[in-house]
Design a protein around this nucleic acid. Structure first.
Lengths: 108, 108
DNA sequence: AAGACACTTAGCTAACTAGCTAAGTATTGG
DNA sequence: CCAATACTTAGCTAGTTAGCTAAGTGTCTT
């Protein structure tokens, strides 16, 4: 689990890879489609795709000479889950502080 | 904005740093407190803290010889915001597909 | 004043990463 | 069948990162 968050967070720390995700949430696309807006060499771009596949954020299928990619929901959920969890704890703490402050102000 | 997401995602791709965040959402803590559970040299740990400070996820104040750290909500929100946005688009797409499927099934 | 404490700085190493070019493989269209 | 297309593999380079040890600075505590 730790390891999965590691690689997902790491994958999304690159703007090119986030752009790929932003593209893919709108629907499946081929490697060429995905690469087109990015001004980098194809092998370099393919490496980014590989990183996204390795951490499970993206899957792809090759048919003939064309590879089509699509997004995978689960790892995105996991990321959201972790962040949401931290927010909950953090907010729980704020609530407690507020309650404490309330209590103190009443006591004075 | 791109740059800020870069560094936040990158910072959280390390388990030690995520552990620090998990600690800090429960309340402020000193460097020693934060470092205690981690079996790494202090300078190494300090570097992790520095990464978290550099991307704005953590702030700290030094008083006497003790440095106290606390979490900063804004960058966490930004991360959540990005993920949430992707999810919305993704789900919007699913909705559209469902609507389309619906329409098609009615037409046949 | 002296020693303990809590960081902090400096500097080194091994591993990883993004970028490139050049050349290769497997389909497909003419 | 031949050329164009769509990746794919191989291999190199420069920059970044996590880890370490050794030594330094500034604050307590006694």
């Amino acid at each position: 689990m730790t390891n999965s968050l590691d690689s997902s967070f790491s994958a999304l720390s690159d703007p090119t890879r986030r752009a790929v995700i932003e593209h893919l949430v709108r629907g499946p696309a081929t490697v060429s489609d995905l690469a087109a807006p990015h001004d980098i060499a194809l092998p370099t771009f393919m490496r980014h795709l590989r990183v996204l596949e390795d951490c499970g954020l993206v899957r792809s299928v090759k048919k003939g000479r064309v590879r089509t990619c699509h997004i995978e929901a689960a790892p995105m959920m996991e990321l959201q889950g972790w962040l949401e969890w931290q927010r909950r704890v953090w907010e729980g703490r704020l609530d407690k502080l507020a309650a404490l402050a309330d209590q103190i102000s009443k006591e004075t």
